[in-house]
Structure formats: C-alpha cells, structure tokens
C-alpha cells in the first residue's frame, strides 16, 4: 500500500508521459525549479530541452505549443494561475481548438494545458482564484477536472495522448488529497464519469475538489437519505449517459460546482436533466454567485464558494 498525493500523481503522470514518448515536452514558467509541484525533478531527469523554462509570455509560449504540436510534438503547457487562462483564451479557443476543423482535418493540435492549483487557494484574492472551466467547455475544448490522485494521474495521462487540445484543471482544493493506491496507475478515458458512492434517493453531481465535500455530506446524511455521488471527471465532453442513468435511479438532482452560476457548468447539467430525464423534484445547484470575484478576506472568499451547509440544504430541498 502506498499513500499517493494528488500533486505527486500529476508529477508521476507527466514523468511517465515524458518517459514513454519523446514527442512529449513541457513549456511553463518555473518548470525547471518545479515551483508548482507538477514538474518537480523533471527537468533534471529529462533535460531543459524537454522541460522548458519559458519567459513570462503566456500567449507566445501557449501558441508556440500549438506550433510544436503541428510539427508532431505533444506539448504540455503549465499555467501556474487559473486566471492566466484568460490571457491565452485566444490561443486556445480561437487557434488550437479551431485548427482541425478550419484546415479540413489536415491539422491536429495535441496540446495539453494544465493548471496545477485552480480555483481558490485561500487568500490569493481576485486575480488568482478563478475556476473558469465552463468557458473552455463552452467553446468545445476537452475540459477535465479530476478529483482524486488516481484520476489526476489517469486523466493527465489521457490528455497528453489525446490528439485534440485539452485543458486540465487540478483544483487547489484537491492537491492535498491522498489516496491508498493498491492497483497500478492507468490512463482514465476522457469522457467517462465515475460514481464514487452509489445511492438511490438523490444524485449529487460534484466537480473536482467538491467531490470530497459531497462524499462527506453524503456520509453525514446517510441515516436520512441515500445519496449517489457522481463525479463527471470530464466536464466536456460530458458523460450524459452516466448522468441520465443515475437520474433514472434517483429522480432527484443536486449539482455542486465551484464556478460562477450564470451559464456555468451546473446550468448545463440541469439542462441535460431537464431535456433528457423525468425528475421527481425541481433540481438544485450550489455554485459561486453570478459573476463572482473572490474577495481577499478569508471569510469573504469562503462565503462565495460552495459549502457543505449549502449542499446539505440543497439535498434536503430536493427531497421535499
């Protein structure tokens, strides 16, 4: 038995990818030093030509990743701060994502963008605390948010091997999660949800680090309600059949999602449920507020993120 941390699992996935395929390379700020943990020790092991420290030019090095991908590489771009995704939205949404279609299938862009520490890290305030996965899912970029060390390993492994651009959010709230790993670490297919806890009364769809919160609430309420915790793992493409099957069993839905409410990820889950399922009660969602900007003070930062009390209330509400 080995206790594997989420951060170490990501590091191992990247090391295994670099080891397995000479086309894999890493571009990022401070990746040589391994400041964000993801690349710790990798430049020493694989060299500065494959684990490349780049200047603070997010747009250029992200697009350089696209150019390298067009010439047969499988670059992994690390962005230390989730809000840097706003800087490179043009490069990802308008370039990387569109090349395959616009070129009539001549080009493929196997580029992986990883944010090790997305969402709030407590105390990093307005410009370091976003969770904009909904934006990438909306434009149609494969968007991942693993919750556990084995899923972090498995989804990062799959992202690097995928022939399309992928953005992987590693929530700051999950980086410290540890897991007893008994089986060998393997790739996890993109687009497959995971049921962490089966239940029969309510389906709680939880994203990223909130999976752990949902599991705790489910356990706490175990005497009064049987909660199924469904982790989509891949936000786009969403595993709709897993969702529909789960709701076929429970008929009740709560979504807990650490992104902004309006046109957010939870909204899409509710829309799928409304279109494809017959629910026994109106669904609920627990999210950040519309258009949230996280304030600095700890209590204010926490106040805008989905909390266990809100989730508990939402579960009880759908039972009425």
């Amino acid at each position: 038995m080995t206790l594997l941390s989420y951060a170490k699992a990501m590091n191992r996935a990247l090391a295994d990818a670099l080891e397995a395929d000479p086309a894999v390379c890493v571009f990022g700020e401070d990746v040589g030093a391994g400041l964000a943990g993801l690349t710790l020790g990798l430049q020493q092991r694989f060299g500065a030509e494959r684990v490349v420290d780049v200047p603070l030019s997010e747009q250029a090095f992200t697009s350089a990743g696209i150019g390298a991908a067009l010439n047969g590489m499988r670059p992994v771009v690390e962005l230390q701060i989730p809000s840097l995704l706003f800087l490179v939205f043009e490069q990802l949404a308008n370039q990387a994502h569109k090349f395959s279609l616009m070129t009539g299938g001549q080009a493929r862009v196997p580029l992986t963008v990883v944010v090790p520490g997305s969402g709030s890290r407590s105390g990093w305030a307005g410009q370091h605390s976003d969770h904009p996965y909904g934006l990438f899912a909306h434009v149609g970029i494969k968007t991942l948010a693993p919750a556990t060390p084995t899923d972090a390993y498995g989804l990062l492994s799959s992202a690097v091997r995928d022939d399309d651009p992928v953005v992987l959010f590693a929530p700051a709230g999950a980086l410290g999660v540890r897991e007893d790993v008994t089986a060998p670490l393997v790739p996890v297919p993109i687009g497959e949800a995971r049921i962490h806890r089966p239940g029969s009364d309510v389906t709680v769809v939880a994203v990223g680090h909130l999976v752990h919160q949902a599991l705790a609430v489910a356990e706490e309420l175990a005497d009064e309600v049987s909660v199924e915790v469904l982790d989509p793992r891949t936000l786009y493409p969403l595993d709709r059949s897993a969702l529909v099957e789960s709701l076929g069993r429970t008929g009740r839905l709560v979504v807990v999602d650490d992104s902004n409410r309006f046109a957010g990820f939870a909204a899409e889950v509710l829309a799928v449920a409304a279109e494809e399922c017959r629910l026994l009660a109106p669904p609920r969602r627990v999210t950040r507020p519309d258009g949230a900007v996280l304030p600095f003070a700890r209590a204010l930062d926490r106040a805008l993120q989905p909390g266990p009390e809100q989730l508990r209330d939402a579960v009880r509400a759908v039972l009425k």
């Binding site: 697009s63 990743g65 490069q91």
Partner: peptide, 20 residues
C-alpha cells in the same frame, strides 16, 4: 501551416513549429 484570421497570431505558431 495556414492563413490566419487574427493579426499576429501566426508568429508564435511559427516559433513553436521551428523549435519542434
């Protein structure tokens, strides 16, 4: 490697392609 509808967008792609 493509004409591009966004002004300046080809330059970093060229740099990455050349690097690779």
């Amino acid at each position: 490697l493509g004409a591009n509808g966004i002004v300046g967008a080809g330059a970093p792609i060229a740099v990455g392609a050349a690097w690779a």
